[in-house]
Design a protein around this nucleic acid. Structure first.
Lengths: 343, 343
DNA sequence: ACGATGCTTGATAGCGCTGTCATTAAATGA
DNA sequence: TCATTTAATGACAGCGCTATCAAGCATCGT
């Protein structure tokens, strides 16, 4: 018996619109959801009434009654703010157009009860889809929990079981290969490598591409110039300290698996008295935004994170398009800057 | 007529729990919401049944039926990934404990129909609260739209109408004042300043604190050493180019209103042949994480972004606690690093 | 002309929960 | 002791929407 609400401060309901348009609420529902089988005339009448009343369908009611929640979530456990925000941007850009909203759900990948937490979350909110980024996208317990709940998901840059779900990725191995080729072409034969976080897919593939390029020229990676890193600046410093240990021969170039580590390498090298890029060339990976404001500017690979996230959301929201491409490989770009110099 | 669902892949409902516990669904509801007036014995019985069935109340149904949606949103229009992710972290940390979830809703502060977009959003999803960060928190149309919808909100670091809503802030002016005092104490009398983005509150206050410190020693800011910046690295470079123009006397220190600009200043100074910190001291503001991996490490002010976001969420979720502190001022910390040297 | 077909529309039953209010059981007082 | 309060529980009506299914109504072929 509530009067139709046309004023500020309260939403009007589908009932108000139906009454004003002189149709049933079901017809309003049809119009709002762009369903077929409504006469154009009726459609216009409803649209007009809806506009007049500033009607916006209530998302929660739609979710409860229908089969869609208009909610997608991004699961991540990654300390890299630039990566996270780019992912979010990509997802939101795609989702908004379809009336979807983004829930951000950072997860602790080392929590012992991670699976239970995810199960609880999915029982609490019926999500229309989940986007998984490394390292969560490669954790069996996570995939199991999501699959058990029957929620569709897309993985970004996974390295395990690529066929288990739709995936979006770039060719990390090829990118590392091409960048390494460049280094070789520029006269570098002694190249160090800083490995990425072993739990993150791209890391392995980047190393693989590096090795492939070396072998093509009959070279092998040298163990003393290959160090484990963890995608952090500090681990880059650490690795550089080992690779550039005083009193040992050191490489003419170091390829770090991501930009933060490359920055760490550069910082250590400079403090160790090496001049960049003359004494040492450094290359990174990711094209991290803040990471390029250094001197000399860093040679790197642009990883299209935002585009991958957009594509992931697209895969999620177009899921019905039968048999469409369930996987997308996005292009990378080599970005040659001054941190690399020919010998 | 659906059988109770105890297996994997589907959620059990309040009905299932009620039946198993031998009580009405209302009693289950009471227990799940920690409402009073339920016998302990009954409570235990219900809890046990709920545990057995892995029951999780459906958030959407709760929202629709009740007065809470368990959803808070973060509105922002800020290109700084570190700032955004810290805000998110703070909000999520507080919200999760109370069963709340975070919706991220970046808004284009320059969109002509911003108010309408927000109104639409709020009509679509009933949010339990909104956290507004600069520059949105200082836009009248935004506040109006939110107030019209009757949604509670908390502002982080606003500078307009501080009494219009609960706010969380730090004392930007005092921080800038104290840092400037340090510079003066270290023998700097010729200090340049790079202003922050004029649409962001902190910017004005930082300048104000700077000027106050100068005046206390009978100095005045010099116009030719004071440049407008926009919180971006590039604008820092630009400002430095102007302040350090060749053939003019230049200051012995430059205080930039944030770290990105400070980095820009440092980069330009170094390229212009100045040695840091010997020829020029540089100070920033924010303690941006990536921004400190530079040489020399940057002297700055730590802005407790995550804590402010946590406090903002706390203010939102504790709103009922009558007359409690509706504003919170969080402490900052001066971080003296090597980019500043005594004359 | 008649049912058959397909397009439009509406009545109605929920989705899973909370709010309100009535009801019952227990506790208290005179 | 019985009336009076207070605690504990349940019945039931929605929240605002979608799904199902049935009904209305043209158009069509034979």
């Amino acid at each position: 018996m509530r009067p139709p609400n046309t004023g500020v401060g309260g939403a009007s309901t589908i009932n108000d619109v139906a009454r004003l348009a002189g149709v049933s609420i079901k017809t309003v529902s049809r119009v709002m959801n762009d369903e077929p089988n409504v006469r154009q005339e009726t459609r216009d009448k409803v649209q007009e009434a809806a506009t007049l009343l500033h009607y916006r369908p209530n998302l929660l009611a739609r979710s409860l009654a229908g089969s869609r929640s208009f909610l997608v979530a991004l699961f991540y456990d990654n300390p890299n703010p630039a990566y996270i925000t780019e992912l979010q941007k990509g997802v939101i850009n795609r989702a908004r157009g379809s009336g979807y909203h983004l829930l951000v759900e950072p997860q602790d990948s080392h929590a012992p009860d991670l699976a239970r937490q995810i199960t609880n979350l999915l029982a609490t909110i019926r999500l229309d889809g989940i986007i998984l980024s490394p390292p969560l996208c490669d954790m069996a317990v996570v995939l199991q929990a999501i699959e058990a709940a029957g929620v569709p998901y897309v993985r970004v840059s996974p390295f395990l079981n690529p066929d288990r779900s739709p995936c979006v990725r770039m060719d990390d191995a090829q990118a590392a290969y091409e960048l390494t080729r460049k280094l070789i072409e520029m006269g570098h034969t002694d190249i160090g490598f800083v490995l990425g976080h072993p739990e993150h897919g791209g890391a392995h593939q980047r190393y693989e591409g590096f090795v492939r390029a070396l072998r093509e020229d009959g070279m092998e990676p040298r163990p003393e110039w290959t160090r484990q890193g963890y995608f952090s600046y500090e681990s880059g410093v650490e690795a550089a300290r080992a690779i550039l240990a005083p009193g040992t021969k050191h490489p003419t170039a170091i390829f770090a698996s991501n930009d933060y580590m490359a920055l760490g390498v550069m910082a250590h090298a400079q403090q160790a008295g090496l001049r960049l890029p003359d004494d040492l060339s450094v290359a990174g990976f990711d094209d991290a935004p803040g990471a390029l404001r250094t001197w000399p500017p860093l040679t790197t690979v642009r990883q299209p994170v935002e585009d991958m996230a957009y594509a992931a959301a697209d895969l999620l929201l177009n899921r019905n398009d039968a048999g469409a491409d369930q996987d997308r490989m996005l292009p990378f770009a080599l970005i040659m800057r001054e941190s690399v110099r020919a010998r």
